[in-house]
Design a binder for these strands. Structure first.
Lengths: 350, 350
DNA sequence: CCGCAAATTTACAACGTTTTAAATTGGCAC
DNA sequence: GTGCCAATTTAAAACGTTGTAAATTTGCGG
């Protein structure tokens, strides 16, 4: 016993007194074990005897120990954070919030937290993605509204950064995604209008640059061609257009010759706008015209049961994306990491 | 050369090569200064000479240095995180997302990140608050839908934890909040209905347990009493009721004797539901009845311009809450840390 | 009861930052 | 040049965790 002498400060309560927060050291002192051992025991490492493993877990539970995320993150380089890119277009009708609730549910019980990175820049926000990759702000990324050659996807693929998109792309390298089968939606919606005996159908499409524009268009056209029915596609309008613009367009068009009498509306806002536009002309839903709409909340059908709706469950989508991302972060192969949601013809029981 | 020998590895590029991320050490090696000095220079500490301060900043900018959040957090105990409690009731119509965009704007340019803590438990989620306080998951908290003696507020006050609510409470200890002047809204809305010549007014109130139930009721009753007009208040219904329940109620009531003809609707969903219920009876807005509604998005007035609306700017509210929280975290006194938003009679130009 | 491998536990060093206290430098009066 | 104070820079420790490598204990055949 020569040189070194422990600082004589082995009061087990000391480090707890400082912040009130128990650490590995606290448990170590309480059990008489080394910090390393405690760490391993909690991590269920194989080389720890069952006896001490159990003992450590007991004590940890008793004093309510939770690992310090900052320390873990510093040491391991993993952030235990999943970031979702919030798009300004998702402000209305709870798109963002539904997805986030789903995500939160998938992350529930895991070590992962959900952080929101808003999209300030217009267009597709490559900068935010870059920031997150370069500074290791998260272990994985989630975002929506993909383009066929989405620059965010390209960037993430190039860097091997885990992510899941809502929507597909056309890159040759596959990546994880969850998407709604918008082809099936558009096809089914148009079919229904035709079956109802509508003579001329129309559809309000997403902005052209988004991948699902093609899917929608394709579904619509397939149904139209099969049935040989008349159709038209408004050029100056898309799903992102403000409601009043859609309403005014519908009102104007219905006064011109040969107007459509069957509307496929892939969004609740566009459906409401269409109803208002038509009823301004005295035309009644289910009478002179019909609508089949995509619905992501219960709102539309509760307000206006005469609208036929097909559901897209965004909360489920969020949950699926969360699960996929966790797998992806865990390093699973890409192959089965994609999901195509089928249109739902009745509201899911929650 | 006996036992220990420094790894002879003083290559300035080494630590960069490992992860690709520059650290204080990188800058230190590049400038020939000590890590401590670099840290201080970047923190603009007073004892650093202007020359080196500038030099360090230059180099840092050049190599794109960003401090490691985990290390800072571990060392200082500050998380640089603000958490928002997401309420399930905010799923529809982008309440949550609007607020979050506002919050994000307020946090923009600061070191703070926004993390979402969802509300899984029913009722007011004290558990989530507890978790955040005990484990130091954030430096500040934001949530909405307060009750007069909100248990979350009590808990936070007791622990001296910084927070800002959307909505007031009735605790004698003051705390930071942002609230909409719902008294003024209800009063103005009811006044307008009366001025339009409506004989009997009604209002759909929030759930009784929420603080702003009282404010709404009070504003409504004040206008009613001043004018001596007839009124009624539906008992079985509140703003959280599903849209179809509201719609059915309105439809049923309008067929009974002495129905109301002026509706104050403090939410877009309730307004839409009311319109549908009335038009099912063949009654027309602006003709047999009127609605004055609160609007938090552009949706309602774009779809149905005949509805008179009064705006509540939730994005602005979020931004204000963010700013207040930052001040509060900075330790400013509570007195001027509360804001009452006035109703807006025209949509704010963004 | 010795030796040796397997089982279990341990010390130590790191991750990148800030804080504390100490060391170095420079300026200036003597 | 010497001494001393202020200005500036520095080394070392710490935050709580995990990975590496080494130490200790245990079991068991001889």
């Amino acid at each position: 016993m020569s040189r070194i002498e422990k600082p004589a400060d082995s009061d087990p309560a000391r480090n707890v007194l400082r912040t009130g927060k128990p650490t590995l050291k606290t448990i170590a002192e309480m059990t008489g074990l080394a910090v390393t051992t405690v760490s391993r025991a909690l991590g269920n490492a194989p080389q720890i005897s069952e006896t001490t493993r159990r003992r450590v877990h007991e004590v940890a539970a008793e004093i309510g120990y939770l690992p310090d995320r900052a320390a873990q993150r510093l040491k391991t380089g993993r952030t235990n954070v999943v970031s979702v890119l919030l798009d300004p277009h998702e402000e209305i009708l709870g798109f963002g919030t539904s997805i986030m609730h789903g995500l939160a549910r998938a992350l529930q019980g895991t070590a992962y937290h959900l952080i929101v990175t808003p999209n300030f820049l217009d267009g597709s926000n490559v900068d935010a993605v870059n920031y997150i990759i370069r500074n290791g702000m998260a272990d994985g990324l989630i975002f929506s509204r993909t383009e066929p050659f989405d620059p965010r996807v390209r960037l993430l693929l190039e860097n091997g950064f885990p992510f899941v998109t809502h929507g597909r792309t056309e890159f040759s390298t596959p990546h994880a995604f969850v998407d709604y089968d918008n082809f099936a939606f558009a096809y089914a919606a148009t079919r229904r209008l035709i079956v109802k005996g509508r003579r001329k159908v129309t559809i309000i499409l997403p902005p052209r640059r988004l991948t699902f524009y093609q899917h929608m268009l394709h579904g619509f056209m397939t149904a139209v061609r099969e049935a040989g029915v008349a159709y038209e596609i408004p050029e100056a309008l898309d799903l992102d257009s403000p409601a009043d613009m859609i309403r005014d367009y519908v009102r104007r068009r219905s006064a011109e010759p040969d107007p459509p009498d069957g509307f496929a509306c892939p969004g609740e806002v566009s459906a409401l706008a269409t109803i208002t536009g038509m009823s301004d002309r005295g035309l009644s839903l289910g009478g002179e015209y019909d609508i089949v709409a995509k619905q992501t909340s219960r709102l539309l059908s509760q307000i206006q049961p005469k609208v036929e709706t097909i559901y897209e469950d965004l909360t489920a989508a969020g949950e699926a994306m969360g699960r996929l991302l966790l797998k992806r972060i865990g390093g699973e192969p890409i192959e089965d990491l994609s999901i195509l949601q089928s249109p739902q013809f009745s509201f899911p029981t929650p």
